[in-house]
Design a protein around this nucleic acid. Structure first.
Lengths: 389, 389
DNA sequence: TTTCGTTTGTTCGTAAGCTTTACTAACAAA
DNA sequence: TTTGTTAGTAAAGCTTACGAACAAACGAAA
């Protein structure tokens, strides 16, 4: 039997990256542990320092030290002694000060207007704002974003932790909107623009990629695909707890993938049978509206929705199979999606993948229908600034 | 303008995980930096401590300290002074001692035999071994693995760093083979079995998931999908540099995803039109053999291969689109795959996805046709034990 | 030849961060 | 009152990385 110095020696990188990315200094470790404490409190609520220590595996000493820092920064507050009578010294409850900061969330994905909101640290929407687009594009549209943010920043009732933006199109990790055809943006450095204007941290992502962050918070799953059906069709993807951006920052762009091998409606992109030609809201409503009222109108409409769901299932099946996904969420108008469409999608997914591997596959509507991008934008800020979500 | 204590404060977790996973101690940081030094030397070759310091961002002091440890462990050696005449003190070159350890790689994915090899730290194959299966399944097949490993361990000419195994079927992260129908394995804890028998670190993965590790080493890309065509069809996937295992540990199982909406051959799994019915080697060769020799034999065979490639493209298109993949590798018999089949696959992929986002998509044959699982198994050990790949 | 500047690698002391150990405070239960 | 438990803190120590300073070794220029 041979032995080496490394038999079973646990290596830090084992569960992290295949290739180490960069040096790690003690302060990074501390920053990580700080986030760990925050996350523990954030998700489990008020508890004692000792509770946090048990939960995180850190010692009480270290937790006390980190908590002292966090109290100094105003992120954590002491709530008073625990009421429940137990042996031992009574615990001083601490919690994230959920009123200490607010977050600006911006949703640029709707077609006629930009939405904004002030979101508290719990993801609750404090107040809203919106501006009508009126066909604005390019600089005019960007100026509308400025104005929307300015109004929200002015009306915030607590220090603002940061600005989160969900935008249509291709957004790179530096917050540059590489391409958003509908808004006439190409290479728009929205992150710098907003940062320079407001002096706040800014996080920007594709609308569907942002939306899946919100949904992921409500889910216990480490893998999640969210399909966002609106004027177009896009997806956001989380794998092993990490958002997937894609090499060209275009992950989730499934709207113009061709579905099936039996042709299909002509698409604006030039191809035929793209997913959007079956599933995009304008197409669906147009098809439904075209059904003549009459005896068979209901079943005709159901057939349209069922076919749309089937097409969605067809395109998702290889993705679900390749990634062994266990959860798919649908975001969009519930009156269209939540019914025959969703049922057909999950049926199709089940019949087209290997049942054995995808036995516990679930497809469901999103928890937070309307505000999913706004909330996701807030999550992005929360996660980027505090390491919490 | 509002300010917060966190404006632009870089947070450790920002680029790592959304939610912090566990505490990080100084020793973990050191372990990470140790791997970083190793990785730098491993991929860039002989250089001075000062070179490593510049490359990694660590100080010369720290690098010297880490290197001293690594020399003590026999992983790094001094090679003598640098020859090139430069001002200043001559550099002492150091490098990973690529002869210090060997790795046992095992490939259980072939149908008639188990393959094994001794692999050096560079991925070079030092010697080979194999055992015929002769239809063995269950415990008999497992015993063959034992024997294969035993022979290789005995013939190693350097300490063995670990044992890497690529197995068909579903393999969980603990090295338990949940299900490998062909071998009659179900819940076989091969990792513990081999660890107990040989006292060496053991790493086990699905054959395609292991293969993609080898291919990833030869690639500069952070995202990579490898399709392994053999008796069945499977895939291995790396996203953002990290292998994707899947919630049910069944990522990459695309062989039984239905392709297209126009039916297809009956599959052993009960469905019709599974990818395997077009692409698996036995199916393909049978179809090709069935072509009558004659005037149009060549074009008939080409049509069969083209159709197989097209089917592969159809099933991959949604995956490529959703993940924004830039690179797909094909592994298997070159005489079948490398030609009309690959051309049809890439053509189909291009026409069925959005050209704009997948402009630089590449599909190619694997670099290391034969030994890809053996080499991937070695990479798995290298990465698991040293954080290097 | 001497001097100067450069580069390498080491030594020494320091700062940061987490742990262990030990302690006090505060409580319940017997 | 005693005993045992729990919370939080304080002190000391270990690990780790850094900066400053230095010696060694070299080329280039004076």
């Amino acid at each position: 039997m041979l032995t080496t110095p490394f038999v079973d020696a646990p290596i830090f990188t084992r569960s992290r990256a295949l290739r180490p990315t960069g040096k790690v200094l003690p302060e990074h470790a501390r920053s990580h542990n700080r986030s760990l404490v925050l996350q523990t409190l954030y998700s489990a609520g008020p508890q004692s320092r000792a509770d946090v220590a048990r939960e995180t595996g850190l010692t009480r000493v270290t937790v006390s030290d980190l908590v002292a820092d966090l109290i100094g920064e105003g992120l954590i507050v002491e709530l008073g002694q625990r009421e429940i009578a137990r042996p031992g010294k009574p615990a001083m409850l601490i919690d994230v000060d959920r009123a200490a900061f607010q977050i600006i969330g911006i949703d640029l994905s709707e077609h006629e207007r930009f939405l904004g909101a002030i979101v508290d640290l719990d993801g609750g929407i404090v107040s809203r704002a919106e501006v009508a687009l009126d066909g604005a594009t390019g600089e005019a549209a960007a100026a509308l974003v400025d104005a929307l943010v300015a109004g929200l920043v002015a009306s915030a009732t607590a220090p603002v932790l940061g600005i989160g933006v969900g935008s249509p199109g291709i957004v790179d990790p530096n917050g540059v909107i590489r391409s958003a055809p509908n808004l006439g943006w190409q290479g728009l450095d929205l992150q710098s623009r907003l940062h320079d204007a407001f002096g706040l941290p800014v996080h920007i992502g594709n609308d569907a990629n942002v939306a899946v962050l919100a949904e992921h918070g409500a889910s216990t799953n480490d893998d999640l695909l969210l399909v966002k059906v609106g004027h177009g069709v896009g997806a956001g993807l989380i794998i092993a707890g990490r958002p997937v951006i894609g090499g060209g920052f275009a992950a989730g762009e499934i709207g113009h993938v061709i579905v099936g091998t039996d042709g299909g409606p002509r698409c604006a992109c030039g191809k035929s049978g793209c997913l959007e030609t079956w599933l995009a809201v304008p197409r669906l409503t147009a098809e439904l509206d075209a059904v003549d009222d009459g005896e068979h109108a209901a079943s005709a409409r159901e057939a349209i929705l069922t076919e749309a769901g089937r097409r969605l299932g067809i395109v998702l099946a290889p993705v679900v199979g390749a990634l062994n996904l266990s959860e798919v969420a649908l975001s969009g108008p519930a009156e269209l999606l939540d019914g025959p469409l969703a049922r057909a999608a999950v049926d199709t997914l089940r019949t087209r993948t290997m049942a054995e591997h995808n036995r516990d596959l679930r497809l469901r509507m999103t928890e937070q229908a309307q505000d999913i991008v706004l909330r996701g934008a807030a999550v992005m800020v929360l996660s980027g600034q505090l390491g919490v979500s």
